[in-house]
Design a protein around this nucleic acid. Structure first.
Lengths: 343, 343
DNA sequence: ATCCTCCGTGTAATCGATTCCACGAGGAGG
DNA sequence: CCTCCTCGTGGAATCGATTACACGGAGGAT
């Protein structure tokens, strides 16, 4: 592969001139510039980003460590992050932690070794040592969606409290009184917060959240299924299950279906995180929707601010409730014939 | 951030010795090795991958350019690619082309600029000039899922012919005779092949595929919806629609639902590419399932073979039919009560 | 005409690793 | 006791870019 030396030789100038010509430096004569460009064209030269990074101590690359790529929420987040980063002239390297702290650590380490300019993290656990150290050492970093309390890093996330209150009001209005939740891992902020918000909202309606109605999940489908089966085995099963993420909701749907029961007649279902597929499930799932794309873009902007020496602000955006049929209410006016179960 | 010089100084040895100690070179005394390791520990030193790459002309990184991250098929592919690559000691940088040739070209260019060791591509179109040139120039490269005819690069893909035949047999057995297809972009191999396989299978049953029953999609949901609406507007609409990928099937479902019709009673539906969500849609969708994970792993193995100087083989794995309810047949024996529509 | 200022360019240092080559010490063999 | 080999080590070149510094020539001011 042609290097800058080859271009310099072909153009009959020094490598310094080639570099200057290519980087838009003002003091290069038009003649020299033209010869350089011609040589570049002829040789199909492309600057070696590795060499440039070594010299400039800059990679124009952001690292993004997410908890689970297979989760549509994170997929969309990743997509919006890449989009905004590209608009700002950065590339993104994604690391998928698969909800495993060891994998998260692996990716943080590799990204740091590659000297990325900044790190976007949605931590799987309390934070790997490597990550905490990087934060302390001043590596530009921003938390997105999930964060780690006590670490001085800006956080870009959405606040689901109001939407969860709306959800509980909706459920209460439908006559449901026994509400259960499938929680996320206690090590994650989102795992805890959603339970807190739910309990708080229940309180406002004079309802309690008994321990038996709080199942421990891990943000994966299998755990949602397991927890839901537990709920159904209870002497007095809940009337509604609220899954703290979309994959666990999928698992819950599985569990209900495997028992030959139906949603919402036998058990109502709601989820945190809305995704396109929820429109097409049987029945369509009521969910708390985060402004995922905006979250990703805001996170990138914050991180780039930090990288380029400006100050980065934490951002909190509101989530909102999207009502569908999984909790019992018929869908808002639609051209489709009203659906009635035979029972 | 500490460099190898700092470690050398702290350990009281030369940088050469540090490098040798860290790379397991045999001729380093136990004493020196211990001092180096202690210094590394103390300084929290991590080798600079950028510098190493410049010197060794190797990045231990694979580039993966896919057509659309939001498509669960590609998400799963990406995940399995990363997994296998990690097992072989490589990192992966993903580029999402979003079905846009210009974006594909952008990512190929950036990846090449970063001097990745090899490229895995699922081309969106006939192939960007940059990509074709890289292939010709000998950059290790493997096509996965889609490929470009006439380019001498190994291809890892699945063959859906048999499964599509099974699908048509299934549909024919259910009494369907007017079968339509939503094709993918003609610029992609998968876009063309699936139509060919479908037409061929129809032929075996003495059926034709009229032009009116061939809609042109682009592998995105919106196009599936548009094409399906066109089908429904026909004087004699088809009885079945076969979508050449899962997102277009989603769009088809949308179209049917928006008309107040139902699947499979008013229009049966089948899709190419099976995904977990198809189990939960209303109704569950019959699909041709590719061995996605195995495809990703095989592609990585082929690419790494090529990178490490062995010869890479093309691989073709069979797809298989997964029958669900969207074409009219009741699901195989299950504990759930038989579902009857009220009409 | 002389001096000063720019302007365009080249030389060389530098980033942080790896690795070839040379060198000194110490052990084995004659 | 001398020679030779081996082993561990350090010096320095190298990868491909960027950039500080120096330098020569042209043009303007006086």
């Amino acid at each position: 592969m042609a290097s800058i030396k080859d271009v310099a030789a072909a153009a009959g100038v020094s490598v310094a001139t080639v570099s200057r010509a290519l980087n838009g430096h003002p003091s290069v004569s038009a003649a020299a510039r033209a010869r350089v460009l011609a040589a570049v064209e002829e040789l199909g030269y492309r600057p070696n980003a590795v060499a440039r990074s070594l010299r400039t101590d800059t990679t124009r690359t952001l690292g993004l460590v997410i908890s689970d790529v297979m989760n549509p929420y994170f997929t969309e987040l990743a997509r919006s992050v890449e989009e905004e980063a590209r608009a700002l002239g950065y590339s993104v390297i994604i690391g998928n932690a698969d909800e495993r702290p060891d994998l998260q650590d692996h990716h943080v380490t590799t990204l740091l070794d590659r000297r990325i300019d900044g790190l976007l993290v949605s931590p799987t656990d309390g934070g790997s040592p490597r990550m905490l150290e990087a934060a302390r050492a001043g590596t530009p970093m921003v938390f997105v969606d999930r964060w780690i309390p006590g670490v001085d890093v800006p956080v870009v996330r959405s606040d689901g409290r109001a939407a969860v209150r709306d959800l509980v009001a909706h459920l209460h209005g439908l006559g449901h009184r026994r509400l259960a939740i499938i929680a996320g891992p206690a090590a994650t902020t989102t795992g805890r917060e959603r339970v807190d918000a739910f309990r708080e909202a229940l309180g406002a309606f004079g309802l309690e959240l008994p321990a038996a109605y709080t199942g421990q999940g891990d943000f994966r489908a299998a755990s949602g299924r397991r927890v839901t089966e537990g709920f159904l085995d209870l002497p007095e099963p809940p009337e509604v299950v609220f899954a703290a993420d979309n994959l666990m909701a999928l698992g819950a749907l599985d569990a209900v279906r495997a028992r030959g029961l139906r949603v919402p007649d036998d058990l109502a279902l709601a989820a945190f995180d809305d995704i396109p597929w929820f429109v097409h499930t049987d029945p369509p799932v009521t969910a708390v929707a985060q402004p995922t794309g905006e979250l990703g873009r805001a996170a990138v902007r914050a991180l780039v601010d930090r990288i380029e020496g400006r100050t980065a602000e934490s951002v909190t955006l509101p989530a909102r409730l999207v009502v569908r049929r999984s909790c019992g209410e018929p869908e808002p006016p639609s051209p489709s014939p009203v659906r009635r179960s035979t029972t």
